[in-house]
Design a protein around this nucleic acid. Structure first.
Ligand SMILES: [Zn+2]
Ligand SMILES: [Zn+2]
Ligand SMILES: [Zn+2]
Ligand SMILES: [Zn+2]
Lengths: 160, 160
DNA sequence: CGCACTCACGTTATTGTATAACAATTGTGC
DNA sequence: GCACAATTGTTATACAATAACGTGAGTGCG
C-alpha cells in the first residue's frame, strides 16, 4: 500500500474558494469544448453543489432553484444534474439518491466515496486499482464501463 | 494481482440448483439461529430471487407475491427483503434500486458487483482489500462501517 | 386462566425520486 | 427565410420507500 493517499477535501480543511473557482472554470471549458453551454440554470446548480462537499438531493436543489426563480419542476433539476454528470464535474451518490461535486474533475477517474451517515458529508478518493475485480471481470468476459465504490460510516466530526 | 479470481456465478454456467438449495438452507438456519422464522412470504421472496442471478425491483417481487396470494402492498415486499438482507442472503444494488441473491452467504464479505446494463444480470465477487481507500479513510479519521463496489457494463451474452 | 410481550402480517396513506412526452423558444449556419 | 440542434417550460405519470396504526398468533409466567 504505497499509495500516497491524497487529501480528502470532504473532511479536511482546504482552500475551498479554489474548489469553486477551478470547478466552475473546468465546467465552462468542457462545455464549450463540446459545443454546449453552461447556462444560468446549470451554472447555478453547480454553484449550489459547490457550497460544500455535501451530497444534496435533486429536490433540495430544485427548491433552491425555485427560490432564485430559475425553475420549479423536477425535469429542470434533473436535466442540469445530468448535464453536469456528463461533463464529469458532478457525481451521483447511489446510496443517498443524492449528488455531489467532483473534487478532481480534470482526470478520468473511478470515483470512491466516504459517506458520513450522520452529516451526509462526502469525501472523494480516486479508487485504487480495484485489485481482483478487474481480473475477475476480464476472466468472466464482462466489459466494465463505469464503476463506483461507496463506503458508509462516520466522519471524524461525527465520531466521539 | 495474484487473486485466484473465483468463479462469477452470475455469468458462468454452474449448478444453479445448488445455489437454490444451499441458500434456502442457509436462510433457514440463520433464521432459527436468531429466534426468527423463514415464513412463507420470506421464503417465497427468496425463491423468486433464486430463479436467477438477476436484480429484481421490489415492485416486481411484490407483483409476483400478489399472483401467489401472498400480499399486495409495498410494505409486505420491503419487510421480507429487509429481513433477508439482515440475514445476509440478499443484497441491494444501489445503482438499480433492486435486489439480488447473495452468492456466498456464509462468509462475511464486502460485496462487489458486475451489473449488466442490458439484461440486469449480476455477478458478485468478493471485494478486494479496497487498496488505498482504507488507508485514505484511516488517514482522514473516517470509520468505515459498510461498503460496496458496483461496476456497470456489458455481460458476455450482451456484447457482440 | 389472565396478562404481558414479541413477532409477523394487513392496510391505508403519504412521501420521495425520477422520467415520459410534448410544446415553445432560442440560436446558428446555409 | 429555413432547417436544425440545443435548451427550457409544463403536465402528468411512474417508480421506490416508509410512516403509522391495527390485528392476531405464539410464548412465558404467575
Ligand atoms: Zn472544497
Ligand atoms: Zn470525481
Ligand atoms: Zn446460481
Ligand atoms: Zn454477497
Amino acid at each position: 500500500m504505497s499509495d500516497p493517499a491524497p487529501p480528502l477535501e470532504g473532511f479536511a480543511a482546504h482552500d475551498h474558494r479554489r474548489c469553486r473557482t477551478e470547478t466552475l472554470a473546468v465546467a465552462e471549458r468542457l462545455s464549450t469544448e463540446r459545443g454546449l453551454k453552461l447556462t444560468p440554470i446549470r451554472r447555478r446548480v453547480l454553484e449550489i453543489l459547490l457550497e460544500g462537499h455535501r451530497a444534496l438531493g435533486a429536490y433540495d436543489i430544485l427548491h433552491r432553484l425555485a427560490q432564485d426563480g430559475l425553475g420549479s419542476q423536477p425535469p429542470v433539476a434533473y436535466r442540469a444534474l445530468n448535464f453536469l454528470r456528463d461533463l464529469g464535474v458532478v457525481h451521483r451518490i447511489e446510496k443517498l439518491n443524492a449528488f455531489v461535486v467532483c473534487t478532481h474533475p480534470r482526470d478520468a477517474h473511478v470515483p470512491a466515496f466516504l459517506i458520513c451517515r450522520k452529516c451526509s458529508s462526502v469525501a472523494e478518493a480516486s479508487a485504487p486499482s480495484q485489485g481482483g475485480l478487474l481480473g475477475a471481470a476480464a476472466q468472466a468476459g464482462f466489459a466494465i464501463e463505469t464503476s463506483v465504490l461507496e463506503a458508509e460510516g462516520l466522519c471524524p466530526d461525527c465520531q466521539g
